[in-house]
């Protein structure tokens, strides 16, 4: 099967206009196969995008993209539960027509028996879990960012045996943690309930540095991401050889059409990983990182590591 590109959901609190424009451009220009849409970080932001969801989904579908709807990462409060149930339960016109990517075990529970995707915030660390999920209807599994190459290889092999596609994030800040607490609000001296949507001021996330001034993390409301942009351009060939069939590009403020084109060129064999990584490095001030894949600290960039067990 030909490897494909997935555009993950926009994680940051962009204005609805920016959000719609972004997807319009993706529909028209980006050579991605699947687009996952949905506000998965904060249920307080969701109503803003809900009004435009239908048109964005239709626009993307009309452009030939496969559209999936993503369920929220953390579902604890009653409101979060209600939103998740509404999205996932049969009878929702939008989600009946599209596949759901489950990002929490509650959504996964409600999707049993229906074909669905498993998002990267559901813990799939081994073949036993992957097999169990496949048995309940998972047709694609996006792996957690922290998995090293050996695990990815074992999972890709197992997935082939049960007919499930395996996806690996190849671009964008790595999601590292989710909380009930909003760190954006906290950094602004606010409470989550009265957050004034201060996260909207940081469309690529709020930079977090160490006390020595070293850039370190990125805060996006209740979510914490890496400072470095995860980039597996140089590892793509190895990943496809393992049997990984899907690559996720996570939206950042950089030109995502250019990012998608670069990865498409890589998958089609038109360009080399090193050249692509060098080009992409020029898009952002943040460093490119790939340490997780090389079984090292995720913040590290390992260059020229081609030895693998």
């Amino acid at each position: 099967m030909k490897p494909s590109l997935t555009l993950g959901p926009v994680l940051f609190n962009w204005s609805v206009d920016r959000w719609c424009d972004f997807y319009a451009r993706i529909a028209d220009e980006a050579p991605v196969d699947t687009v996952v849409v949905g506000e998965i970080v904060c249920h307080k932001r969701a109503p803003f995008f809900a009004v435009a969801m239908q048109s964005v989904v239709e626009r993307l579908a009309a452009a030939g993209k496969t559209v999936w709807l993503a369920s929220p990462i953390l579902v604890g409060s009653e409101r979060e539960r209600a939103a998740m149930r509404e999205l996932v339960s049969p009878g929702n016109a939008l989600s009946d027509a599209t596949m759901i990517e489950a990002n929490d075990m509650g959504a996964l529970a409600l999707l049993a028996g229906r074909p669905h995707a498993v998002g990267p915030t559901i813990n799939v660390y081994n073949e036993a879990t992957l097999g169990w999920l496949a048995g309940r209807g998972a047709v694609a599994v996006s792996l957690p960012a922290e998995l090293p190459a050996a695990s990815v290889a074992a999972l890709a092999k197992a997935a082939a045996g049960v007919g499930t596609a395996v996806e690996v994030q190849a671009w964008g800040r790595a999601p590292l943690a989710i909380s009930a607490r909003c760190y954006h609000a906290r950094a602004h001296g606010l409470h989550k309930d009265g957050c004034q949507f201060v996260c909207a001021g940081d469309p690529d996330g709020m930079p977090v540095a160490t006390m020595d001034g070293q850039p370190f993390l990125t805060v996006n409301g209740t979510q914490t991401l890496s400072h470095g942009y995860l980039c597996l351009a140089e590892e793509l060939e190895e990943l496809t050889a393992m049997g990984v069939g899907r690559f996720r590009l996570s939206p950042q403020v950089v030109d995502m059409v250019r990012v998608a084109e670069a990865f498409r060129d890589l998958l089609d064999g038109r360009r080399e990983g090193g050249a692509v990584a060098a080009e992409l490095a020029g898009l952002t001030e943040a460093p490119l990182v790939n340490g997780f894949f090389h079984d090292s600290a995720g913040a590290r960039r390992i260059v020229g590591a081609s030895h693998r067990v």
Binding site: L74, P144, L176, A177, F292, G298, A299
Partner: peptide, 17 residues
């Protein structure tokens, strides 16, 4: 403060999670 079992902060800094 994070949802347990869903946190890669430690492995981002150290490689061990």
């Amino acid at each position: 403060p994070m949802a347990e079992g869903r946190c890669s902060l430690s492995s981002y800094a150290t490689g061990l999670s």
